[in-house]
Amino acid sequence: MITLYHYLVLSCILFAIGVAGVLLRRNILIVLMSLELVFNSVNISLAAFSHFLQSMAGKVFVVFTITVAAAEVAVGLAILVVIFRQKKTVYVEDLSEMRH
């Protein structure tokens, strides 16, 4: 019998993998892909709550999350293209002007 907790544990594992990708990888493209994994794990947990608590709010919020994720990826990739045009790099540690 699959319960809410199974879905929550799966969502937790996917979230941790996404965070690992964001922290470990140097390539901004992969960092953005890992962010998408994080969004997906949250979507799973929202849909699971919605299904097991028999409510509709979670599913509505999944629709909103998917929209926001699409907007985020569009702007993020646009920024990445501009950065690459100016600096010819996609590695996160080469982009430290804002720090000092």
Binding site: I2, N43, A47, S50, V62
Partner: peptide, 18 residues
């Protein structure tokens, strides 16, 4: 997994958008 959670619309949106 969305289909397993009885929300086929979310599954379709997931495939279309992502």
């Amino acid at each position: 997994l969305f289909v397993l959670l009885r929300s086929p619309f979310l599954a379709a949106v997931q495939v279309f958008v992502y």
